[in-house]
Simulated assay, not measured.
Amino acid sequence: MATGAYDSSTARAYVRATDSVFRRDVISHTTRAELGDLRGLSVLDVGCGEGRDARWARAQGAVRVLGVDLSEEMVRMARQRSAGDEHLTFVHGDGTALPDTGRFDVALAVNVLHYALSRDSLARMYQQVYDRMHPGGRLVAVCADSRCDPSRPGPDAYDITIERPAGAEEGAEVRQRFLRDGRPVAEIVYRHWPRDLHERLAHQAGFTHLRWSALRCTADTVPRRGPDRHARYLSNPHLVVLTARVAPR
């Protein structure tokens, strides 16, 4: 499914690199606002990493949370940080073949869909998520934005660089680097999948009410980080939010 099956050292480096203002004040802030009230609901976290969002979902009142990740090391870290909660489970698995452990009210997929190595893999990921959801369920995904122009400023506002060939075709490799003090500290590689392809494959899987929206930042990010930082990012964002629903049956 993905290029993101991190080994032990890579997983730890990725977690350190993404423990950042951008992850906390932008990605997490946006996804949590989109997820809304989780009290009494079940949540599927696809590409859960070390379990940050899954633990938050439980803390917000979700009655059952399942996190799935392709990286065994990420799953180990998630289990270690969430020990003692029998309603919070983490399993090693592939987004194209999710474990069949019941149905969920909400699915979360943060920075995972763009790891699909082929159009067929991306289609299977959408179908697998759809098939694991209750009627009326909601999907919240954060995807690489195919409209981002790597030659222009934007991601650098949050110490990120994007490398992608000019005029990249569907499925082309994209390299994203995380910087600290201007130097790369981690790199991930994913694929270039246009927005309209996401829309077609999500509809094909059965999702309805698709909506794209921009990432938002917390109210205190602006005074702490400068008034133009997030505006600069939004002028050329490398990530975008996609929400969708499962029609009532």
Rank of each mutant, 00 (worst) to 15 (best):
A116E: 00
S121M: 02
L108S: 09
S121T: 09
V112D: 05
V140C: 02
Y115V: 04
G137D: 02
S121H: 12
L117T: 11
S118W: 08
A107D: 01
H134L: 15
L122Y: 00
S118I: 02
Q128P: 13
N111K: 08
R132G: 09
V110G: 11
L139S: 02
S121I: 00
D120S: 13
A141C: 02
Y115W: 08
Y126G: 02
L113F: 15
V106T: 14
V110R: 12
M133F: 08
V129Q: 11
Y115K: 07
C143E: 14
Q128R: 14
R124Q: 12
Q128L: 12
V129N: 00
V112M: 05
N111C: 14
V112R: 05
L108P: 00
R119F: 04
C143A: 14
L122E: 06
R124D: 13
A109S: 13
H134G: 09
V110C: 12
A141D: 02
P135T: 13
S118R: 06
Y130E: 03
V112Y: 03
L122I: 02
A107V: 06
N111Q: 09
L108M: 13
L113V: 06
Y130A: 14
Y115N: 12
R132C: 03
A141G: 01
V140Q: 04
G136Y: 04
L113P: 09
P135A: 04
L139D: 03
H114Y: 08
R132S: 06
A107P: 00
R119L: 10
A123E: 15
L113G: 10
Q127M: 12
A109W: 01
M125T: 14
R124N: 05
H134M: 15
R138P: 01
H134T: 15
V110E: 11
Y115M: 11
A109C: 11
V106R: 12
A116P: 00
V142R: 01
M133Y: 10
N111R: 11
L108K: 05
P135L: 13
L122D: 04
H114D: 08
N111V: 11
Y130T: 05
C143L: 15
G136R: 07
H134S: 12
D131T: 10
Y126N: 06
R124G: 06
Y130K: 01
